[in-house]
Design a protein around this nucleic acid. Structure first.
Lengths: 343, 343
DNA sequence: TTGTAAGCGTTATCAA
DNA sequence: TTGATAACGCTTACAA
């Protein structure tokens, strides 16, 4: 029975009020008498009114949309980040228009165009492809997370501190030699790059023998695993009888190394101490749970929302206001597990 | 310099054409002379035009939005599903308005209201909270994935077949006794419930001794792990010396069981055969990679998009057309790894 | 407390 | 091939 698209017009006609009053019923209920509110309420019910936010957006110029560009979702870090953002709906009311990057730079520019066309109120960027200088040129509220951020606001884990804590822990384990296995593609301006600085500074501070290890680009999990197996075997061969402290740049790498040690070097397990980074599920789910430097994803997301809501507010007051880049940092959390037994 | 919001009006004024012609330049370019197209193109460039899809939606009545309600993103299954949907943008052009459920039934109803208010063209539902009868009552293009689907269109993995293949594989391994460890909360109408039927039917077919095991609701990974440790120890105690074939209802469970066996029953490892379900990363990343029944996520998503695009097309032709529930099925893929060595 | 009327930026229908 | 005009459904001065 219900008319397919009931509008304020219909409610107005039915109740004898004007469209304006119906609008006020929703937006400023206190300016409508309680009796009339009741009348309107009944009419809405009776006619089966379904609100239309598109019209509202057009009239008000506010979409309550935030654009989100992430590299992918198969890495648990990004999946958990997105999950937190989606949950923030309860608190902030913003909906997220999500694009998954990884289709290249041009595709990502197109995504941004699309987001602009939908008049998103702000943009949150986790993908690495577009330089922050270009992002800044779009001139809208924008926050990045764990990526190059020179010209835009950002929130990142204190990666340097993470590197320091990981290495200090290995040091407390009394290791003789310190290895850092790193992802090859990290740009020097990536926040995660600072983990390396933390590692190096601690090694220098205590004058510890240390080494940086990396590998060439991987194409799949199996491929990555094979490359890490070679590295792990090299370490075993190079430092026999020494206690080896290995700091991996993420938990997936740490897990692969750990698995390989369990399978192929199980006699010398005592000689290894291992710590990863991120605090992803894999570190907890390993046979022998792996120590890690956890990123506080809830705080990263909270911080990002605060930053962007701030910028949106500023722009609402003065649409031509300059948005000064603000950089915030979240402390990492050391999670010590079976792989870093102290002696 | 650029005016903050350049509209068709501005372009029209600048070029001397009318708004209509500018609109046609975008929507029916062939009805505008090439020369005039060039003029308009230059004006757009010069004035820095930025298209406004909100206005377009209001005028056309089509949002190119699809609503998506998922339970969460920390389970890799849902994360990968969402990733696939986001990627389908390249093919179908639909944007996704995503809500993460798990906040309860009322919250989910509110999400749906919100999605309706944004005039999404269709809805894809993975969360389990709202019965399909109610979903159907919203009367818009709708597809569910791996959940109760009596009254709506759906696409699911052929769970029965998956259960059969898992059990047949354990049988080929020559097991003496067959165990199925299952999630407690599965409703009987959930597609995944049919895995149990597959297991049971194969056991009966060969007249195999078998047992169903479950546990009471878990609150965290650690809690889940502890409950499964107890179950695993019970199995070991109850069937000493027998070859035990364990079919777990998902890979996370299988991984926990596998880890526990490695740590606490390593002498009897030969006596165990293990297979999980889903094909999640954890099954590949375990010390000894775990056999699993993989769900073909790309096909589930492809199928869902085909179904919903179909429904949307039907509705576009005839807005009052009935949407008959269609149920499609995707074959599971058996991945045989180290934990199901045949003899 | 309520109503009038203009406006948000497009698209669609006609007529020219 | 182009333009005038009326939608689309809501918000918001301003007036009553």
């Amino acid at each position: 029975m219900a008319k397919s698209n009931v509008t304020f017009q219909d409610i107005a006609q039915y109740t004898g009020f004007s469209k304006t009053t119906i609008s006020r019923y929703f937006n400023h209920p206190d300016t409508v008498t309680p009796q009339n509110q009741a009348i309107i309420r009944e009419a809405l019910e009776k006619l089966g009114y379904q609100s239309n936010k598109v019209a509202r957006i057009l009239a008000k110029g506010q979409t309550e949309f935030i654009g989100l560009i992430i590299p992918n979702l198969y890495l648990s870090f990004y999946a958990e980040i997105l999950d937190e953002f989606l949950k923030s709906y309860e608190k902030y009311g913003y909906k997220f228009l999500v694009f998954s990057g990884g289709q290249g730079e041009e595709a990502e520019r197109q995504y941004i165009q699309e987001l602009l066309a939908y008049h998103v109120e702000g943009l949150i960027v986790l993908s690495h492809t577009i330089p922050s200088l270009e992002l800044a040129s779009y001139d809208l509220p924008l926050v990045t997370i764990e990526r190059e951020d020179q010209y835009v606001s950002s929130i990142n884990t204190d990666n340097y501190q993470g590197g320091v804590e990981a290495t200090e822990l290995l040091h407390r384990c009394g290791c003789d030699v310190y290895l850092h296995i790193n992802i090859p593609v990290l740009g020097k301006k990536t926040p995660a790059f600072r983990r390396i600085d933390g590692f190096r500074d601690v090694c220098r501070k205590y004058d510890l023998p240390h080494e940086f290890l990396s590998y060439k680009g991987e194409s799949s999990y199996q491929d990555l695993a094979e490359k890490l197996h070679v590295i792990t075997d090299d370490i075993a061969r190079k430092y026999p009888g020494k206690r080896k402290g290995i700091f991996c740049s993420n938990d997936t790498i740490a897990n692969i190394v750990s698995n390989h040690l369990l399978r192929n070097h199980s006699r010398d397990l005592e000689d290894y101490r291992l710590i990863g980074f991120d605090g992803s599920p894999v570190s907890e789910q390993a046979v022998y749970p792996i120590s890690t430097i956890a990123q506080q994803i809830d705080q990263l997301v909270d911080g990002a929302m605060e930053l962007i809501v701030d910028q949106i507010r500023i722009r609402k007051k003065d649409p031509s206001a300059l948005l000064e880049p603000v950089h915030r940092t979240v402390a990492p959390v050391l999670i010590s597990r079976a792989t870093t037994e102290e002696v």
